[in-house]
């Protein structure tokens, strides 16, 4: 494991470079295939509405996968992430148009832990709504 960020270079409050991730219906179909999650709420508008959703929604695990990219891109080595957890608070609604939705992710070092590790808190929003809660990673730095 070889993170490119040194523990001594960061402090509580250090912000990671924020990123935005577009998501369209095509993205969701592709993620369904790659992940094996074919729940129709992620691709079938009629079905989604029948179960009370406003429209097709992104897989929660897709949003979780995008959010941690802010940390893995920062740390360089994905194996630097030793813990990662989220709460799925609101769905990412994905309309059937060329634009789809956007997930905006920011993150900052919340605390320095022992053994070269830091806790990073993530914030993920879409259409102004917080889509992940309690979103935290423990990251082992160099």
């Amino acid at each position: 494991m070889t993170a490119k960020i040194a523990y001594d270079e960061v402090e509580a409050g250090t912000e990671l470079p924020a990123q935005t991730f577009p998501v369209t219906r095509a993205t969701l179909v592709r993620y369904a295939g790659a992940s094996g999650d074919f729940n129709p709420i992620h691709w079938n508008e009629k079905f989604a509405r029948e179960v009370g959703l406003p429209d097709v929604i992104a897989h929660g695990m897709f949003t979780m996968a995008e959010a941690i990219r802010v940390v893995t891109d920062w740390a360089g080595d994905p194996a630097a992430v030793v813990e990662y957890g989220v709460r799925f608070t609101k769905p990412v609604v994905v309309p059937n148009d060329d634009e789809g939705a956007v997930i905006e992710v920011s993150a900052k070092v919340a605390a320095k832990l022992d053994d070269g590790r830091v806790r990073v808190d993530l914030t993920a929003t879409s259409a102004g709504q917080k889509v992940l809660g309690m979103s935290r990673a423990v990251v082992k730095l160099a």
Partner: peptide
């Protein structure tokens, strides 16, 4: 899977890059 989440980190697709990280 990496392509489905749009993540181009070479550690997911390039053995040499992964080895360079240990």
């Amino acid at each position: 899977f990496a392509e489905a989440i749009g993540d181009a980190n070479p550690a997911y697709t390039d053995q040499e890059a992964a080895k360079a990280l240990g």
